[in-house]
Write a protein that binds this DNA or RNA. Sequence first.
DNA 1: CACTATAACTTCCCTATAGAACTATATAAG
DNA 2: CTTATATAGTTCTATAGGGAAGTTATAGTG
Lengths: 257, 257
Amino acid sequence: MDMQKAAGSGESEGIDRTAFEPVYAQLVNILRRQVASGFLRPGDQLPSEAQLCRRYGISPMTVRRAINILVDQGIVVAEQGRGTFIRPVELGTASFQLQRLQELFEDDPRNTVRLLQARIMAADERTAAKLQVAPGQRVIYIRRLILACDEPTLCHVEYVVYDPARPVVEAEMDVTALRGLFGGAGATMLKHGDLSVEATLLTEEEAALLQASRPAAAFRIEHLFFDFDDRPVSWGWFICRSDRLRFTSRLGLRGAE
Amino acid sequence: MDMQKAAGSGESEGIDRTAFEPVYAQLVNILRRQVASGFLRPGDQLPSEAQLCRRYGISPMTVRRAINILVDQGIVVAEQGRGTFIRPVELGTASFQLQRLQELFEDDPRNTVRLLQARIMAADERTAAKLQVAPGQRVIYIRRLILACDEPTLCHVEYVVYDPARPVVEAEMDVTALRGLFGGAGATMLKHGDLSVEATLLTEEEAALLQASRPAAAFRIEHLFFDFDDRPVSWGWFICRSDRLRFTSRLGLRGAE
DNA sequence: CACTATAACTTCCCTATAGAACTATATAAG
DNA sequence: CTTATATAGTTCTATAGGGAAGTTATAGTG
């Protein structure tokens, strides 16, 4: 091979057979770096699989595996018979991680959950529709206040289907059970859930709880969880001061990496 | 094989060699259905790779590929030497697709972008910091109003680095160029970007533009885009009435699918 | 010029196999 | 009873190769 590129950018890297990092992962990172450094730009064609095999001295399956990873990371798009190309940055691929919210329910002593109210009541029209029960049927009504580092951060309102046969109910009454709803042991009761985020104004009561002055804007994160029979179990929403919790996302590749 | 499960659930499915769907994808869907139907539940162990090979009569590499897909879909977690297990529903895996937002910039005749203001000005303290330029340096200030189906939906404020050498600038002044920023041809100029969502109150001016009565809450989606030298190109934010655009997400698997 | 056939190249799918690395369990020795 | 050791089971990595399906460009034919 005589023809070489400028060789200044990222062409020079190779595979380290002694490294702990698997070969396919090394190739993924090499190509990611070539994209991040601008050596490969959106629309550019990747070297063909056969070329990559020769260039790095690895087997076709290993190359394919690396490229597959890049494909479902959304970094490249492969077109059969044509080639593999770098994808431009798109907005549709943005996803917001909710780990910040998740952390609030971890076993951190600085985070506390205060039970404000818990009683059994008759479901009103809207609640009955959401939980797919008859209006007037008894449901459990729960209100909580979540504090992070002793600062009131979240308000939570939740309606749970009342079913003595279901053991979830008892645990749900517990103050700490909310952690179980999200990732703890109790999550094994839930098959799936829907989330929906909107912006809303704080009510007078919510503002008092969250120690905010009105008028103020806040996130309203509505949730609806189902059991393994696809029947609704729990419906409710979080009210969250925007300055206490922010959703961020990154499009494309970062610079260093 | 004599030992059979209840056989009512999802155990009975097999691989269709004549189908268009690849074998590995068929296996992915079979296992997904077994999770969705409750035949496999969080914490349960998947059959081992060798067992799946025998059960479905396919090669180990194909089974591995299917399992890898399930792993990075977040449906199962594989532990070396132990086994592969169904993951419980977790909040951290939630991601909000922004395709609804993306659609606003598509080539739809019902969506129009109205340029309200565009002029060159000196960067104030905050803008200069975001764009990494000296305070007082000239930047381009743009305000737009985006209408979906003739309803005012989004306000957009944007500051763009003023650099005559950069061809982006001229195009950016164009009213329709905003589409290019997100997924169009212009996106090839951008390497990556940061997004951040918060809840905010509408200002008097914003309320007038969006035909809302105050006080009202809205999303504020801040964006910061970088070029291939990792230098900021554009900083700004969208103001969006919450009832016109909502972010939804699903945790776990849906029922039908 | 228009159209077709061919060849070269690409990605894609699947198989078969070998070993490495890790974990749990049963067994033997102290 | 505790502690090593062996063994079987698991996932994980990597190799080599065969064929299918799609694209593109070229050469040939009408």
